[in-house]
Write a protein that binds this DNA or RNA. Sequence first.
DNA 1: GTTTTTCGTAAACTCTGCTAACGAATCGCG
DNA 2: CGCGATTCGTTAGCAGAGTTTACGAAAAAC
Lengths: 391, 391
Amino acid sequence: MSATRLPGTPRLLRALNDRAALELLLERGPLTRARLGELTGLSKVTASQLVERLEERGLVARVGEQAGGRGPNAQLYAVRPGSAYVVGVDVGAERVVAACADITGAVVSQVEQSTRDTDDPVGVVHTAVVQAASRAGAHLDNVRRVVLGTPGLVDPTTGDITFAFNLPRWHRGLLAALREDLHTPVVFENDVNLAAVAEAQSGAAQGMTDFVLVWVGAGVGLAIMLGGRLHHGSSGAAGEIGYLPVPGVPIPRDVSRRAKPAFQQLAGADAVRAVAREHGVDAPDAADAVRAAIAAGTAGGPLLDELARRLALGVASTCVVLDPPLVVLAGEVGQAGGAALAERVQHEVAAITLVRPRVVPTGLTEEPILRGALRTALDAVRDEVFGSTVG
Amino acid sequence: MSATRLPGTPRLLRALNDRAALELLLERGPLTRARLGELTGLSKVTASQLVERLEERGLVARVGEQAGGRGPNAQLYAVRPGSAYVVGVDVGAERVVAACADITGAVVSQVEQSTRDTDDPVGVVHTAVVQAASRAGAHLDNVRRVVLGTPGLVDPTTGDITFAFNLPRWHRGLLAALREDLHTPVVFENDVNLAAVAEAQSGAAQGMTDFVLVWVGAGVGLAIMLGGRLHHGSSGAAGEIGYLPVPGVPIPRDVSRRAKPAFQQLAGADAVRAVAREHGVDAPDAADAVRAAIAAGTAGGPLLDELARRLALGVASTCVVLDPPLVVLAGEVGQAGGAALAERVQHEVAAITLVRPRVVPTGLTEEPILRGALRTALDAVRDEVFGSTVG
DNA sequence: GTTTTTCGTAAACTCTGCTAACGAATCGCG
DNA sequence: CGCGATTCGTTAGCAGAGTTTACGAAAAAC
């Protein structure tokens, strides 16, 4: 009938303040009641009651005393790590890495397994998740969310994988299998998107709310971070820049799963190897080729220039549309290229468009996709456990 | 010292509820105290006190009675139109249109003037603003904001125009001149962005929070609406798709103000006229040429196909990056092309990329830029006058 | 003309946070 | 070593905001 809004009852204040306090405890480490009052803007006595309340709910705990001050020693409080856990998984084609983090974000365990020598890859993933949890000492009931990072597109309405270009077929059964006996939400997320989340948390885009991450590996991909949130697009296909119609490659007039996307053909790992060969660098792996070029110093310049010229076409298209302040180059090739490649791309982009984004290489080496998966899971779980601010 | 957050004091509730009530009064017309209670979720008593408060603040007023019910006639309340005004201006190269709207959004006056026969265009704009206000019966002190829609880029930090491709020089002096004696905020906004705002309010994108608008006129431009808000980009240059590096046009290796942007060369009005001539259609104006092709029925097909093919390159690039659910074609050429052109573009985009956005022509004929300017001004002014929800 | 329903307003209560005051603990200084 | 100065945490009373309950008055229904 009438779309009634959420009322504006006093109870809302509690939720708001409790949430703010918990967020502060996570960000600024253990805090005293008094300090928490200052930071939230609440009075000393209200802050004190708030802590008591959260302690009763089991969300925070006393973790020590702060000596050295003038008056009596203040009690320090922190979020209780054990109040909830999450599991993140990097589901690659050949290996699976799972990790478990507590609600403070501390990574408590990590498991890696190969899927090459098995004929039950779904089982492998499943076991990895369960193992990660158990090694963390987390009861499965206390694992509140599992986020799986994979290549391919995720349908934003169903959460299923809709299009998987070079993705093993078995990923399909994964959601169902995990959801069946883990009584917890399980979600997919695109791997490149997760890498961007990690980059924003502790990589080259630390503290930035707006930037894009260009992934250059076997395929090329793009993650878009706007206002601190990922932009997925209406069908989850935002950032599939492999399909950019760029100059220099014939545009397939009928997109099918067979046709090779234009920009991908120009800048994917296959293309990188081919270009490297033309420049006299022969390596089994695209990233190796790039590293060789960099090691060669001046002699490697022309190869890097050519790669930058190609990448710049896609980066320029992206930047002309979005005008981000920062572009992060990631993926095996992007990482291998380092500052040398990033600088060249930045220069090249500035040459062909008006926008002049900063282009930098990834600042992460250790499992960016996995870290991003954990972070994504944490954000969602904190909303649940701490009580959402918005209703 | 310590970055204290906003407290969570009871007073915040007032602000929240008052704001919600005002918003409802704007959206759902005059309301009784009881109905307002239902819609906000507040109790009858609180809603009643709320109305009283707003009436004292001069923001709402009794506008009648609702007879026909069972009990005593309920009093109807509505937002007082005169509590604030805004002025929007479409600043074109050859003419200026200004309009004044009251805080309810009703357009109260509209003024149009040519800038061709004068050597003081700044004065013309200035006069138009003042006239629009006075004809609306609004005292200048009560005009709380002026939004100027112009071509060119707006620097998000300063609000000044940073880059104006084919923009008369005198726009520079405009901000200063208006701010000098109007004691009110004056801001520039890109005209294409404003068209998108209007389209979302009452055009082809009505009710959509995510879509893009492609402007095809003398130049080509793009406006990006995400989550109901315009995306401007870090330097205000988001959507300058004239600079897209598309196949079929040599990419200028050194972007200067002289060099013609690639996609612009392919799909701007000049290109449209040229293509039309090749197809045997000779018209003084690009939009006329398109209309002629449509009027020609089957015979005009090939021309429209070619235009769609060209436009699709830019639209595809945009959609590959953003994956919007809807693309609106606007501008003189986009409007002239109507459904015939939009359908062809939609088909063509689907052929070269994986994403399949709906492509439709603009649903607005009357001064979209002006309407968008008014709407933009209103959104800001309501935040000020009603008290912002966020602090 | 009576009954029923609804409007608007009081009065009393609940929930939340604030200010003031105070005992207790700790350090600094004579 | 003792006293004063500070700061922690708590208790008590108050102020702001919304809720439930009750009620008189007005309009329609019967």
